[in-house]
C-alpha cells in the first residue's frame, strides 16, 4: 500500500510541476491544484497507514490498543483541503480577471511588471 501511494504521490508532484511550467495560466492553476493534492496524500502516507484499526478506546483503558490508525493526519488533511479549496477558488477568479484585462493566457506575455 505504501509503495502504491508513494508512486501516486510522485506522479502527482511530477504532473503538477510539469503543468506549472507550461505557459498557459489555466495549466498553472491545474498544476497548483495537483501539488496540493500530492501534499495531502503525502501527509496521509507519512502519518502511517494502519488499516482496519480504528482508534477506539476500550472500556476501562485510557489509550487505544497499540497499532491504531492515527486520526490526526486526517484532521490536518481536512484543514488543508479546505484552505486549498478557498485559495484555488481565488486563483481561478484571478486568472479569469487577468485574462479579461491582459487579453492573453500566455504567461510569457505578462511581463509588464517584470524588471
Amino acid at each position: 500500500m505504501n509503495v502504491v501511494l508513494a508512486v501516486v504521490i510522485g506522479g502527482l508532484y511530477a504532473t503538477g510541476l510539469y503543468m506549472m511550467m507550461r505557459r498557459s495560466i489555466v495549466k498553472l492553476i491545474i498544476g497548483l491544484a495537483l501539488l496540493s493534492h500530492a501534499a495531502n496524500l503525502l501527509i496521509f502516507t507519512a502519518g502511517g497507514l494502519t488499516r482496519a484499526r480504528p482508534p477506539l478506546i476500550p472500556e476501562g483503558a485510557n489509550v487505544p490498543p497499540a497499532p491504531f490508525a492515527d486520526p490526526l493526519p486526517q484532521a490536518l488533511i481536512l484543514t488543508a483541503i479546505v484552505i486549498s479549496f478557498g485559495v484555488l477558488a481565488f486563483a481561478l477568479v484571478l486568472i479569469h480577471r487577468a485574462y479579461g484585462t491582459v487579453g492573453t493566457d500566455d504567461l510569457d506575455e505578462m511581463k509588464a511588471t517584470d524588471t
Binding site: I43, A46, L76, V87
Partner: peptide, 24 residues
C-alpha cells in the same frame, strides 16, 4: 493582476512545500 499571478503562484508553491514538510 500580472504581479498577483506571480505572487500567488510562488507563494502557493511554497505553501505546498510547507504542508509536505509538516506531514513528513
Amino acid at each position: 493582476l500580472e504581479g498577483a499571478i506571480k505572487y500567488v503562484t510562488l507563494n502557493l508553491l511554497s505553501s505546498a512545500v510547507f504542508l509536505a514538510a509538516v506531514g513528513l
